[in-house]
């Protein structure tokens, strides 16, 4: 995406933010509360409309496309405030992701959507695979509404993976995970990137971001104040000031 600007009323939430994610790359996006990270995600997905700038997926300008059209071009995401289907079970959450993908992959008509029932082995197999990979295998039949946040976030990730995205936006996926779980999660992200997935990671756990990201962007007051590889960012004065407050 390049030069995205978003305004709300008198507020300017994002000013001319440009960043890119390559295939197989994990880009970290960090910054204090209210810096505009989630707004940036919403602009990329088409949930809010940027007042200027453009969003490109695989070179194609998608700035005028609906959210679902962008998703069909390979854009997946998770949410900071969980958006799980809380009346469905863990496996059904992931299944919906897979099934929705199948409908648009097949350019399915409404009639075909009707007929797309389960009992279709590939769907089941794919769902099982995703659950197993995320370590959710034992929870397949548990209603998502009753999971602790950490696991619900993994379900959200699994659901997004069901749509087989090429770029994945993760909004604080590790909050709610404990230390060993976070380490596992970091390995999972590296594996996904190894498989060619581009990942944009918003995360408060700076340690995790430093570990897994090749490139880090720091956002403050809606603009990028620093970017580069982890070492560069860690040493940047402006970043330390943004996190711990200026004036010291």
């Amino acid at each position: 995406m390049s030069g995205v600007t978003v305004r709300f009323g008198g507020h300017q939430a994002l000013t001319d933010v440009s960043l890119g994610v390559d295939e197989g790359q994990i880009v970290g996006l960090i910054g204090p509360n209210g810096a505009g990270k989630t707004t940036l995600f919403n602009a990329v997905c088409g949930v809010v409309t940027p007042s200027a700038g453009s969003v490109r997926i695989m070179g194609r300008d998608v700035s005028n496309l609906n959210t679902h059209r962008r998703a069909r071009l390979g854009l997946g995401r998770t949410f900071q405030r969980l958006e799980v289907f809380s009346s469905l079970t863990v496996s059904d959450n992931v299944r919906v992701g897979v099934e929705i993908r199948q409908t648009w992959e097949r350019r399915g008509t409404t009639a075909r959507q009707f007929l797309a029932t389960d009992g279709n082995l590939p769907v089941d197999a794919e769902v099982d695979l995703i659950l197993e990979r995320l370590g959710l295998g034992g929870l397949a039949d548990v209603p998502v509404g009753s999971l602790p946040t950490g696991q619900a976030r993994l379900v959200e990730l699994g659901r997004a993976l069901g749509a087989r995205p090429s770029v994945l936006l993760l909004d604080e996926p590790a909050s709610g995970l404990d230390d060993p779980e976070t380490a596992d999660f970091g390995r999972l992200l590296t594996d996904l990137a190894g498989a060619g997935l581009g990942i944009l990671l918003v995360e408060h756990d700076v340690g995790l971001v430093m570990d897994v990201c090749e490139h880090i962007c720091v956002l403050d007051f809606g603009s990028v104040i620093a970017s580069g590889d982890p070492e560069v960012v860690r040493a940047n004065e402006a970043v330390v000031a943004a996190y711990l407050g200026a004036g010291t």
């Binding site: 998703a71 949410f79 929705i100 389960d118």
Partner: peptide, 22 residues
């Protein structure tokens, strides 16, 4: 069926469904 699950999913979170391509 798959369609029924999708309807329920849409009720629970329209925005999530849209980001899955629905």
């Amino acid at each position: 069926s798959a369609w029924g699950r999708r309807l329920t999913a849409m009720r629970d979170s329209p925005v999530a469904c849209a980001t899955l391509g629905l």
